[in-house]
Amino acid sequence: MIDRIHEAVRARGESEGDGDARTDGGTATVADDDAGSFFGSVSRDFLGSLPFWLPPFALMGFFVYGAIGWNFALSLVNVQQFNQPNYSQLDFDQYLRAFGDPSFISAAQNTAVLLVAFTLACLVVGLLVAILVDRHVRFENTFRTIYLLPMSLSFVVTAQFWLWLYNFDNGLVNVVTQALGLGRYKWISNPELALGAVVFALIWQFSGYAMVVYLAGLRAIPDEHYEAARVDGASTLKMYWRVIVPQLKGATISASVVLMVFALKAFDFLYALAGGFFPPKGTDILSTMMVRQAFSAGNRSYAAAIGIMLFLLAIAIVAPYLTYQYRRGEL
Protein backbone atom coordinates (compact mmCIF):
# COMPACT_ATOMS: atom_id res chain seq x y z
CA MET A 1 0.00 0.00 0.00
CA ILE A 2 2.73 2.42 0.97
CA ASP A 3 4.31 2.30 -2.49
CA ARG A 4 1.03 3.04 -4.11
CA ILE A 5 0.45 5.90 -1.72
CA HIS A 6 3.85 7.32 -2.54
CA GLU A 7 3.00 7.22 -6.18
CA ALA A 8 -0.14 9.12 -5.44
CA VAL A 9 1.84 11.65 -3.46
CA ARG A 10 4.12 12.25 -6.39
CA ALA A 11 1.13 12.69 -8.65
CA ARG A 12 -0.30 15.16 -6.20
CA GLY A 13 2.96 17.13 -6.15
CA GLU A 14 2.69 17.66 -9.89
CA SER A 15 -0.95 18.58 -9.84
CA GLU A 16 -0.35 21.15 -7.13
CA GLY A 17 1.50 23.35 -9.60
CA ASP A 18 -1.66 23.69 -11.66
CA GLY A 19 -3.74 24.05 -8.52
CA ASP A 20 -2.31 27.49 -7.83
CA ALA A 21 -4.17 28.85 -10.80
CA ARG A 22 -7.52 27.93 -9.29
CA THR A 23 -9.64 30.98 -8.86
CA ASP A 24 -11.11 30.33 -5.44
CA GLY A 25 -7.67 30.15 -3.85
CA GLY A 26 -6.36 32.98 -5.98
CA THR A 27 -6.59 35.84 -3.51
CA ALA A 28 -4.90 33.84 -0.83
CA THR A 29 -1.97 32.99 -3.07
CA VAL A 30 -1.49 36.61 -4.07
CA ALA A 31 -1.57 37.71 -0.45
CA ASP A 32 0.99 35.11 0.39
CA ASP A 33 3.46 36.31 -2.20
CA ASP A 34 3.12 39.99 -1.45
CA ALA A 35 2.86 40.06 2.29
CA GLY A 36 5.67 39.70 4.77
CA SER A 37 5.92 36.62 6.90
CA PHE A 38 4.04 38.03 9.86
CA PHE A 39 1.10 39.41 7.94
CA GLY A 40 0.96 36.56 5.47
CA SER A 41 -1.55 34.45 7.30
CA VAL A 42 -3.46 37.32 8.88
CA SER A 43 -4.29 38.92 5.56
CA ARG A 44 -4.91 35.50 4.06
CA ASP A 45 -7.80 34.95 6.43
CA PHE A 46 -8.97 38.53 6.06
CA LEU A 47 -8.98 38.45 2.27
CA GLY A 48 -10.55 35.01 2.29
CA SER A 49 -13.40 36.32 4.43
CA LEU A 50 -14.13 39.38 2.26
CA PRO A 51 -16.27 37.68 -0.40
CA PHE A 52 -18.54 36.41 2.35
CA TRP A 53 -19.26 39.44 4.47
CA LEU A 54 -18.51 42.35 2.20
CA PRO A 55 -21.47 42.06 -0.20
CA PRO A 56 -24.04 41.80 2.61
CA PHE A 57 -22.20 44.51 4.48
CA ALA A 58 -22.21 46.82 1.47
CA LEU A 59 -25.93 46.34 0.88
CA MET A 60 -26.81 46.73 4.55
CA GLY A 61 -24.33 49.60 5.04
CA PHE A 62 -25.74 51.55 2.12
CA PHE A 63 -29.31 51.25 3.29
CA VAL A 64 -28.67 51.69 6.99
CA TYR A 65 -25.66 53.95 7.47
CA GLY A 66 -25.76 55.62 4.08
CA ALA A 67 -29.43 56.43 4.49
CA ILE A 68 -28.94 57.76 8.02
CA GLY A 69 -26.18 60.07 6.78
CA TRP A 70 -28.37 61.26 3.93
CA ASN A 71 -31.25 61.74 6.31
CA PHE A 72 -29.05 63.79 8.62
CA ALA A 73 -28.01 66.02 5.72
CA LEU A 74 -31.68 66.42 4.84
CA SER A 75 -32.46 67.50 8.38
CA LEU A 76 -29.96 70.34 8.17
CA VAL A 77 -31.61 72.04 5.20
CA ASN A 78 -35.13 73.25 4.72
CA VAL A 79 -36.99 71.13 2.19
CA GLN A 80 -40.72 71.22 1.86
CA GLN A 81 -42.80 69.21 -0.50
CA PHE A 82 -41.41 70.33 -3.83
CA ASN A 83 -38.22 72.33 -3.49
CA GLN A 84 -34.77 70.81 -3.90
CA PRO A 85 -32.43 70.72 -0.90
CA ASN A 86 -29.93 73.56 -0.82
CA TYR A 87 -26.89 72.06 0.83
CA SER A 88 -24.94 75.32 0.90
CA GLN A 89 -26.92 76.48 3.88
CA LEU A 90 -26.89 74.07 6.77
CA ASP A 91 -28.36 74.74 10.17
CA PHE A 92 -30.13 73.12 13.07
CA ASP A 93 -33.34 75.09 12.55
CA GLN A 94 -35.46 71.97 12.20
CA TYR A 95 -34.30 70.71 15.58
CA LEU A 96 -35.01 74.08 17.19
CA ARG A 97 -38.40 74.08 15.54
CA ALA A 98 -39.17 70.70 17.10
CA PHE A 99 -38.51 71.92 20.61
CA GLY A 100 -40.87 74.85 20.10
CA ASP A 101 -43.59 72.68 18.59
CA PRO A 102 -46.28 71.61 21.11
CA SER A 103 -47.27 68.63 18.99
CA PHE A 104 -43.64 67.42 18.97
CA ILE A 105 -43.42 67.84 22.74
CA SER A 106 -46.59 65.85 23.27
CA ALA A 107 -45.48 63.13 20.81
CA ALA A 108 -42.17 62.90 22.66
CA GLN A 109 -44.01 62.59 25.97
CA ASN A 110 -46.26 59.89 24.57
CA THR A 111 -43.22 58.06 23.22
CA ALA A 112 -41.59 58.15 26.65
CA VAL A 113 -44.74 56.92 28.37
CA LEU A 114 -45.15 54.15 25.83
CA LEU A 115 -41.51 53.09 26.11
CA VAL A 116 -41.48 52.93 29.90
CA ALA A 117 -44.99 51.66 30.65
CA PHE A 118 -45.03 49.10 27.86
CA THR A 119 -41.55 47.75 28.59
CA LEU A 120 -42.01 47.51 32.34
CA ALA A 121 -45.43 45.90 32.10
CA CYS A 122 -44.22 43.35 29.54
CA LEU A 123 -41.25 42.47 31.73
CA VAL A 124 -43.36 41.97 34.84
CA VAL A 125 -46.05 39.94 33.05
CA GLY A 126 -43.43 37.98 31.12
CA LEU A 127 -41.45 37.12 34.25
CA LEU A 128 -44.50 35.98 36.19
CA VAL A 129 -45.78 33.85 33.34
CA ALA A 130 -42.30 32.39 32.75
CA ILE A 131 -42.04 31.38 36.41
CA LEU A 132 -45.44 29.68 36.21
CA VAL A 133 -44.59 27.86 32.99
CA ASP A 134 -41.23 26.80 34.41
CA ARG A 135 -42.85 24.94 37.32
CA HIS A 136 -42.69 21.61 35.53
CA VAL A 137 -46.23 21.83 34.18
CA ARG A 138 -47.58 19.43 31.60
CA PHE A 139 -48.08 20.67 28.02
CA GLU A 140 -45.47 23.27 28.82
CA ASN A 141 -44.57 23.77 25.15
CA THR A 142 -48.21 24.19 24.22
CA PHE A 143 -48.68 26.91 26.82
CA ARG A 144 -45.55 28.64 25.61
CA THR A 145 -46.66 28.43 22.00
CA ILE A 146 -50.08 29.92 22.80
CA TYR A 147 -48.67 32.78 24.86
CA LEU A 148 -46.27 33.71 22.10
CA LEU A 149 -48.84 33.43 19.30
CA PRO A 150 -49.90 37.11 19.23
CA MET A 151 -46.32 38.10 18.55
CA SER A 152 -46.33 36.26 15.24
CA LEU A 153 -49.21 38.45 14.05
CA SER A 154 -48.82 41.66 12.14
CA PHE A 155 -49.44 44.95 13.94
CA VAL A 156 -51.99 45.59 11.22
CA VAL A 157 -53.87 42.42 12.13
CA THR A 158 -53.83 42.95 15.88
CA ALA A 159 -54.96 46.54 15.39
CA GLN A 160 -58.12 45.21 13.70
CA PHE A 161 -58.82 42.90 16.60
CA TRP A 162 -58.35 45.61 19.21
CA LEU A 163 -60.44 48.12 17.30
CA TRP A 164 -63.29 45.70 17.72
CA LEU A 165 -62.44 44.80 21.34
CA TYR A 166 -62.44 48.51 22.22
CA ASN A 167 -65.67 49.20 20.29
CA PHE A 168 -68.05 51.42 22.25
CA ASP A 169 -71.27 49.55 21.57
CA ASN A 170 -70.36 45.87 21.66
CA GLY A 171 -66.61 45.55 22.23
CA LEU A 172 -65.51 42.94 24.75
CA VAL A 173 -63.79 45.49 26.97
CA ASN A 174 -66.94 47.54 27.38
CA VAL A 175 -69.05 44.43 27.84
CA VAL A 176 -66.77 43.50 30.73
CA THR A 177 -66.60 46.97 32.30
CA GLN A 178 -70.35 47.30 32.04
CA ALA A 179 -70.88 43.91 33.65
CA LEU A 180 -68.61 45.05 36.49
CA GLY A 181 -70.75 48.16 36.86
CA LEU A 182 -68.04 50.52 35.65
CA GLY A 183 -69.92 51.71 32.57
CA ARG A 184 -68.80 52.14 28.98
CA TYR A 185 -65.86 54.15 27.70
CA LYS A 186 -64.69 55.48 24.36
CA TRP A 187 -61.34 53.75 24.78
CA ILE A 188 -59.86 54.91 21.52
CA SER A 189 -61.48 58.23 20.80
CA ASN A 190 -61.09 59.57 24.34
CA PRO A 191 -57.58 61.15 24.41
CA GLU A 192 -57.32 60.48 28.15
CA LEU A 193 -57.73 56.73 27.69
CA ALA A 194 -56.35 56.07 24.21
CA LEU A 195 -52.65 55.75 25.09
CA GLY A 196 -53.40 53.37 27.94
CA ALA A 197 -55.60 51.28 25.65
CA VAL A 198 -52.81 51.11 23.06
CA VAL A 199 -50.26 50.10 25.71
CA PHE A 200 -52.57 47.36 26.96
CA ALA A 201 -53.04 45.96 23.46
CA LEU A 202 -49.28 45.97 22.89
CA ILE A 203 -48.73 44.17 26.19
CA TRP A 204 -51.13 41.51 24.97
CA GLN A 205 -49.08 41.16 21.83
CA PHE A 206 -45.54 41.20 23.27
CA SER A 207 -45.58 39.93 26.87
CA GLY A 208 -45.18 36.46 25.40
CA TYR A 209 -41.84 37.57 24.02
CA ALA A 210 -40.58 38.60 27.46
CA MET A 211 -41.86 35.26 28.75
CA VAL A 212 -39.80 33.30 26.21
CA VAL A 213 -36.64 35.26 27.00
CA TYR A 214 -37.13 34.80 30.75
CA LEU A 215 -37.91 31.13 30.28
CA ALA A 216 -34.60 30.65 28.48
CA GLY A 217 -32.92 32.49 31.36
CA LEU A 218 -34.64 30.30 33.96
CA ARG A 219 -33.60 27.17 32.09
CA ALA A 220 -29.98 28.25 32.33
CA ILE A 221 -30.12 28.30 36.13
CA PRO A 222 -29.03 24.93 37.49
CA ASP A 223 -31.52 23.00 39.63
CA GLU A 224 -29.00 23.02 42.47
CA HIS A 225 -29.73 26.70 43.07
CA TYR A 226 -33.39 25.99 43.74
CA GLU A 227 -32.48 23.05 45.93
CA ALA A 228 -29.83 25.00 47.83
CA ALA A 229 -32.33 27.79 48.53
CA ARG A 230 -34.84 25.19 49.76
CA VAL A 231 -32.25 23.60 52.02
CA ASP A 232 -31.46 27.07 53.36
CA GLY A 233 -35.13 27.31 54.30
CA ALA A 234 -36.16 30.08 51.94
CA SER A 235 -39.86 30.39 51.12
CA THR A 236 -40.85 30.15 47.46
CA LEU A 237 -41.33 33.88 47.20
CA LYS A 238 -37.98 34.63 48.85
CA MET A 239 -36.26 32.03 46.75
CA TYR A 240 -37.37 33.68 43.53
CA TRP A 241 -36.77 37.21 44.74
CA ARG A 242 -33.33 36.67 46.25
CA VAL A 243 -31.85 33.76 44.33
CA ILE A 244 -33.51 33.43 40.94
CA VAL A 245 -34.49 36.94 39.80
CA PRO A 246 -30.98 38.40 40.34
CA GLN A 247 -29.64 35.76 37.98
CA LEU A 248 -32.01 36.94 35.24
CA LYS A 249 -30.26 40.27 34.85
CA GLY A 250 -28.96 39.38 31.42
CA ALA A 251 -32.40 38.25 30.22
CA THR A 252 -33.99 41.42 31.61
CA ILE A 253 -31.51 43.66 29.83
CA SER A 254 -31.82 42.00 26.44
CA ALA A 255 -35.61 41.71 26.67
CA SER A 256 -36.00 45.39 27.60
CA VAL A 257 -33.82 46.55 24.74
CA VAL A 258 -35.78 44.54 22.21
CA LEU A 259 -39.13 45.59 23.71
CA MET A 260 -38.17 49.25 23.56
CA VAL A 261 -37.20 48.84 19.94
CA PHE A 262 -40.61 47.25 19.28
CA ALA A 263 -42.24 50.20 21.01
CA LEU A 264 -40.39 52.62 18.77
CA LYS A 265 -41.75 50.68 15.79
CA ALA A 266 -45.36 50.83 16.98
CA PHE A 267 -46.13 52.99 13.95
CA ASP A 268 -47.75 50.11 12.08
CA PHE A 269 -50.21 49.52 14.93
CA LEU A 270 -51.28 53.15 15.25
CA TYR A 271 -51.54 53.62 11.50
CA ALA A 272 -53.76 50.57 11.18
CA LEU A 273 -55.85 51.63 14.18
CA ALA A 274 -56.64 54.94 12.56
CA GLY A 275 -56.56 53.76 8.97
CA GLY A 276 -54.35 56.72 8.09
CA PHE A 277 -51.56 59.08 9.04
CA PHE A 278 -53.43 60.67 11.95
CA PRO A 279 -53.41 58.29 14.91
CA PRO A 280 -56.15 58.57 17.54
CA LYS A 281 -55.86 61.76 19.59
CA GLY A 282 -53.53 61.34 22.53
CA THR A 283 -51.54 58.50 20.97
CA ASP A 284 -49.35 60.40 18.55
CA ILE A 285 -45.76 59.22 19.04
CA LEU A 286 -42.56 60.32 17.30
CA SER A 287 -42.72 57.42 14.82
CA THR A 288 -46.17 58.38 13.57
CA MET A 289 -45.44 62.09 13.66
CA MET A 290 -42.32 61.62 11.53
CA VAL A 291 -44.14 59.66 8.85
CA ARG A 292 -47.01 62.13 8.83
CA GLN A 293 -44.69 65.12 8.47
CA ALA A 294 -42.76 63.40 5.70
CA PHE A 295 -45.43 61.83 3.57
CA SER A 296 -48.60 63.68 4.40
CA ALA A 297 -47.70 67.20 5.49
CA GLY A 298 -44.70 67.41 3.18
CA ASN A 299 -42.33 68.86 5.78
CA ARG A 300 -39.46 66.65 4.72
CA SER A 301 -36.62 68.34 6.56
CA TYR A 302 -38.65 68.54 9.74
CA ALA A 303 -39.47 64.86 9.39
CA ALA A 304 -35.81 64.07 8.80
CA ALA A 305 -34.90 65.88 12.01
CA ILE A 306 -37.48 63.87 13.94
CA GLY A 307 -36.09 60.71 12.36
CA ILE A 308 -32.58 61.61 13.50
CA MET A 309 -33.84 62.23 17.03
CA LEU A 310 -35.53 58.83 17.02
CA PHE A 311 -32.26 57.33 15.84
CA LEU A 312 -30.38 59.02 18.69
CA LEU A 313 -32.99 57.70 21.11
CA ALA A 314 -32.46 54.17 19.80
CA ILE A 315 -28.68 54.59 20.05
CA ALA A 316 -29.06 55.80 23.64
CA ILE A 317 -30.96 52.59 24.42
CA VAL A 318 -28.84 50.19 22.44
CA ALA A 319 -25.28 51.49 22.85
CA PRO A 320 -25.03 50.64 26.57
CA TYR A 321 -26.49 47.24 25.80
CA LEU A 322 -23.97 46.52 23.05
CA THR A 323 -21.15 47.73 25.29
CA TYR A 324 -22.39 45.42 28.03
CA GLN A 325 -22.53 42.48 25.62
CA TYR A 326 -19.07 43.30 24.29
CA ARG A 327 -17.60 43.39 27.79
CA ARG A 328 -19.05 39.99 28.48
CA GLY A 329 -17.45 38.74 25.28
CA GLU A 330 -20.77 37.89 23.68
CA LEU A 331 -20.37 39.80 20.46
Binding site: I5, A8, A11, R12, S15, D18, G19
Partner: peptide
Amino acid sequence: ESTDMADDVIDER
Protein backbone atom coordinates in the same frame (compact mmCIF):
# COMPACT_ATOMS: atom_id res chain seq x y z
CA GLU B 1 -9.94 18.88 -1.42
CA SER B 2 -6.17 18.63 -1.66
CA THR B 3 -5.56 16.35 -4.62
CA ASP B 4 -6.79 15.75 -8.14
CA MET B 5 -7.24 12.04 -7.54
CA ALA B 6 -10.09 10.31 -9.32
CA ASP B 7 -13.04 9.34 -7.18
CA ASP B 8 -12.43 5.62 -7.50
CA VAL B 9 -8.79 6.01 -6.47
CA ILE B 10 -9.85 7.96 -3.42
CA ASP B 11 -12.47 5.39 -2.63
CA GLU B 12 -9.99 2.56 -2.85
CA ARG B 13 -7.51 4.34 -0.60
